[in-house]
Design a protein around this nucleic acid. Structure first.
Length: 498
RNA sequence: GUCCCCUUCGUCUAGUGGUUAGGACACCGGGUUUUCAUCCCGGCAACGGGAGUUCAAUUCUCCCAGGGGAUGCCA
């Protein structure tokens, strides 16, 4: 049977790096076995779902560059792929369970859920201290006569439908990664809500019904879902369906060992994009969180990953998200870009910084192209480009004298060095890097300076900073006349400061 | 509290009874160099603890400890 897997996000927030990792693993698995990857929108939380987040979902995956074979936007034989459009289906199935005696109507108010989480925790703790045997819902309505319950429900009394968890016995399953896991039914969440009072299904119902109806063969999801697995198994059994194979992926943690969240740093994929991460770097890094491929290699393209992926290389232990290592990957991928590609990537950042017009002029583009090789190995993020290239597109402030001093040189000495440098600059061809260096080196020796003594003040004068791409190449891109002009102004400042 | 999952360098991992426990990032040295980077070389650094099984355990079993997750009309 052909494998069918799905990514089933709820559009209640920006796409999170953790969920995208789950999506990626599902995608890689599907590709590695020639299966089908499906997107299903779980928008059953009416108050939190929003179209803006659906748009963010599409934008995110378009950027990442891996896509689903079936989904709300591309269609497919098992649609619709948006749960709100499958509304009637869930009620039908919930009713069916009630008719079979596997679920029941509940008329309790949901005052507990209206409280804040903390309050609920305190309640539970208090209940436990008092020696309460159970936890969660006390199964109050489970004993109502079914006929009467039906009458009350039909008469319009507000209600939910709850699943009857067997009071004894055990429920278990074989996790592809974790092996056999089982629970005493007495330890399973007592009678979870399947259909909410607004008629929408909860995750549990919608998930099981849709996975079955959509022919899902493998469910790969984060380990935080393990405790709800028995609920789902009980439902599959109640419906008389075969459950899909389950595989619970290790969680992604922050450096403090807790579930990765905003306080650890960027978590929305959008944030990574805006910071100037390359999608290939992000995919490469995230794919390696909790999974290994070829030993001794760390750079993998999406195609490589899809080919090499295998469930038995997934780790059981949770993984800490390491921003520093991701940064290293980003640098690697930036360096792999051709000059043309790099220009294409940094242009939006140059435009956003106001250094380059929108659209860029031909001169700006050729300037960027000439400068690309100078900054390629210096960028950690694409967003570093404006700062690194600012001197080419904007006039830097004339630096104060102190800023220009090389190590161990005073103002007078620096003025002398810069004077010599400016004069020499007028006589050389800046595009001939080797010749320039030879000429400056000779001049430095002649005057008793080091090469750096000549170059540092010139660098600061021309680029406005002590840190810049290689000087001669920078000057070649900028134009010698402009460089000389800046250097003369700086020289005047130095002389005035003697 | 209860249930469930997990446990190799600081981090990501390789390893499936016998290895000097390997690699990557980070860190620390050194080299190249025109600042900053890149690049190259070297170094530091791990099998949570205790019982077993075995000629032999990082590898298998059990217990403990530690960490995490769940315990919603959110997913």
């Amino acid at each position: 049977m052909k494998a069918r897997v799905r990514y089933a996000p709820s559009p209640t927030g920006l796409q999170h790096i953790g969920s995208v990792r789950t999506a990626l693993f599902n995608y890689l698995f599907a590709r590695s076995v020639g299966g089908t990857f499906i997107l299903r929108l779980e928008d059953t939380d009416r108050t939190r779902s929003s179209d803006a987040y659906v748009k963010n979902l599409y934008d995110t995956f378009r950027w990442l560059g891996f896509y689903w074979d079936e989904g709300p936007d591309v269609g497919g034989p098992a649609g619709p792929y948006t749960q709100s459009e499958r509304f009637a289906l869930y009620r039908e199935h919930a009713d069916r369970l009630v008719e079979m005696g596997k679920a029941y109507y509940c008329f309790c108010s949901d005052e507990k859920s209206a409280k804040k989480d903390d309050a609920v925790d305190e309640d539970d703790a208090a209940a436990a201290e008092q020696g309460a045997t159970g936890f969660g819902y006390p199964r109050t309505c489970r004993s109502i006569d079914p006929a009467e319950a039906k009458r009350r429900a039909d008469s319009g009394e507000p209600h939910v439908i709850r699943l009857k968890i067997p009071l004894d016995g055990v429920t278990g399953f074989d996790d592809i990664l974790l092996g056999h896991i089982e629970w005493k039914n007495a330890d399973v969440n007592p009678d979870p809500v399947l259909l909410k009072s607004d008629g929408f299904p909860t995750y549990h119902l919608a998930n099981v019904v849709d996975d079955h109806l959509m022919g899902i063969t493998h469910v790969m999801r984060a380990q935080e879902w393990i405790p709800s697995a028995p609920l789902h198994i009980i439902m599959y059994e109640a419906f008389g369906w075969d459950p899909p194979q389950l595989c619970h992926l290790p969680m992604v943690l922050g450096e403090d060992g807790h579930k990765l969240s905003k306080r650890h740093g960027a978590t929305a994929v959008d944030e990574f994009r805006k910071k100037g991460y390359l999608e290939a770097a992000l995919i490469n890094y995230v794919a390696m969180l909790g999974c290994s491929y070829e030993d001794g290699r760390d750079i993998f393209s999406l195609e490589d990953l899809a080919r090499l992926f295998s469930m038995d290389h997934i780790n059981k232990a949770p993984a800490v998200f390491d921003y520093v290592k991701l940064e290293w990957f980003n640098g690697q991928y930036i360096r792999m870009l051709s000059d043309e590609e790099l220009v294409g990537r940094i242009t939006p950042f140059m435009v956003a910084s106001g250094l380059v017009s929108e659209p860029p002029s031909a001169a700006q583009t050729s300037g960027l192209l000439a400068a690309a090789p100078l900054v390629k190995e210096r960028l950690k993020y694409l967003s570093d480009a404006p700062e690194a290239l600012r001197f080419l597109f904007a006039e830097p402030a004339v630096p104060p004298a102190a800023e220009m001093l090389p190590k161990k040189l005073d103002v007078a000495g620096t003025a002398k060095a810069l004077d010599a440098a400016v004069e020499l600059l007028g006589t050389v061809d800046p595009s001939d890097h080797d010749a320039c260096e030879a000429a400056f080196r000779a001049k430095a020796t002649e005057l008793g300076f080091k090469l750096g003594d000549l170059l540092m003040p010139l660098r600061v004068a021309v680029t406005g900073t002590k840190v810049s791409p290689p000087l001669f190449q920078s000057i070649a891109v900028l134009g010698r006349d402009k460089a000389v002009e800046r250097a003369r102004k700086a020289l005047a400042v130095l002389r005035a400061a003697i």
